[in-house]
Amino acid sequence: MTLDAVQPKTRAPGQTGAAEWDELFARAAVTAGKSLELMAGRPLDIRAGKAVAVPLGEVPALAGSPEDPLTVVFVAVEGGAAGQALLCLRPEGAERLAALLLGRSPAGSGQVHDFLGLSALAEAGNVALSAFLNVVSDRTGRPLRPSVPVVVTDMAGAILASALVSGGNVEEEAIVVEAGFGSAAEGMEGFILYLPGPPPPAEHRGGRDRDEVELAGPSPRP
């Protein structure tokens, strides 16, 4: 499996991504990838992040066939730029990553459902996603609080659509930030998705500043 096999399908670059945001997400992706490299003790190929607008109906297919299994470390993000952050791997890749972190041989079944394997994946997701969010938080000056990570393996479409809806994203389009990482040699390519929540209704915006609203929408940051 190559990185291309799991990279999200996106619309034309630049459709939403102001250069400033693309630079921010690229930096966040590299930081997240470096944190995973440190954990895994291996060099990884890191594909910079970018923000794209995806029609709601296409979100379940972001990782390819919505019926194919996907392993996801999920955190809900609260704070100034609330949303959902997901570390996504094919189950075989997740198993290899867990095995690498635990210093054991992968069983080759794609199963990571023992306690240690799940804990290792949760920690990898926690570290990578926190690193990603820290860069976003530093740049926007808004605190971001990730929830305790949840690891789930199931149909990609079921996970991605549920994550999107649970974050209140029910607009015609979702803003998706995607960044790839992995090692073809290790067979554990994956990607990070960040789904910023929708901007709050005007009547509920009191106390929030422009940065928060703009992060959730397509407008460029000043």
Binding site: L56, D154, M155, A161
Partner: peptide, 24 residues
């Protein structure tokens, strides 16, 4: 049949599918 869609068919060669239903 994707998120938020409804489709109707009388074509016997068709199978309609909702792929990857989670909370939907």
């Amino acid at each position: 049949v994707n998120l938020g869609e409804s489709k109707v068919s009388t074509d016997p060669s068709v199978t309609m599918v909702c792929f990857g239903l989670g909370s939907c």
